[in-house]
Amino acid sequence: MAEESIVELKDVTIYQGDHLVLNDVNVQINKGDFVYLIGKTGSGKSSLLKTLYGAVELKNGEGRVNSYDLRKLKRKQVPYLRRSMGIVFQDFELLPDRNVHDNLWFALRATGWKGKDKMNQRIQEVLEKVGLGTKGYKMPHELSGGEQQRVAVARALLNDPDLILADEPTGNLDPGTTEEILNLLYQISQNGRAVIMATHDYKHMKKLSSHIIRCENSTVSSEEVVVSTEE
C-alpha cells in the first residue's frame, strides 16, 4: 500500500491567511484512484488542492505529495512539486498570448524538455489524446470553453504525471462538454494515475465509481461509491 500512495495528509489544518478553512484533514490517495472532492463553494475544496500544489502553505500536520514533504517545502521547490503532477483549473489558465501548440511548448520547455522533434511529437500525442490533434495552431480565445479545457488537460498530461489535480474543471462548461471532460479524466485514472477532482456538480459524478471526499463544516469525510460500469 505504502508505495502506491501518492498523496498523504495526516491531521492537517489548512488556513487561508489567518482564517481556518479545514481542520483535522486525513486523506490518503493511491495510484489509479478517481477521487471527487465535493462541498459547497467556500467549504475549502480549492484550499485543499492549493495545499497539494504548493500555493497554500502547510503549517500544521503532515503532508506528502509524491516525494515532496509539504511541511518542508521551500519556495524554490514549488515548481518541481508542480512538475510532478498535472493541474487543471476552472478558468483553464492557458497563456492567452500564444497558440495551443506554443502553450504546450512553453510547458515542456519550462519543465526542462529539450529537442525540437521530441517535443513536437509529445505535443501531438497529448493533443490527439484529448481529441484536438488538428487544432494546435489556434489561439486559446478561438476555441470553445470545452476545447480550452481539453488543451489544459493535454498540458497536464505532458509530463506523464502520476497525479492529476482538477479544480472545478467543468465549472464553466455546459452539461454535454462536462461529460466529455469527465470521461477524459476518468480514462486517465483508469491508466493508473490518480485524479483528484473538486466539483459541486453532483448530477454527473454519480455515474462513475470513485472515492468521495466531502468538505463540510470545516472538516472532511471520506466515502466510497462503486457503480457497475458495465452498461
Binding site: 512538475r83 497563456l95 498570448d97 498540458r155
Partner: peptide, 17 residues
C-alpha cells in the same frame, strides 16, 4: 501578471520565467 501566474502554475521556475 496573469501570464506570469499561469507560467508558475505549469511548474516553470522563477529564473525560466
Amino acid at each position: 501578471r496573469f501570464i506570469i501566474k499561469t507560467m508558475q502554475l505549469v511548474g516553470a521556475t522563477s529564473g525560466f520565467i
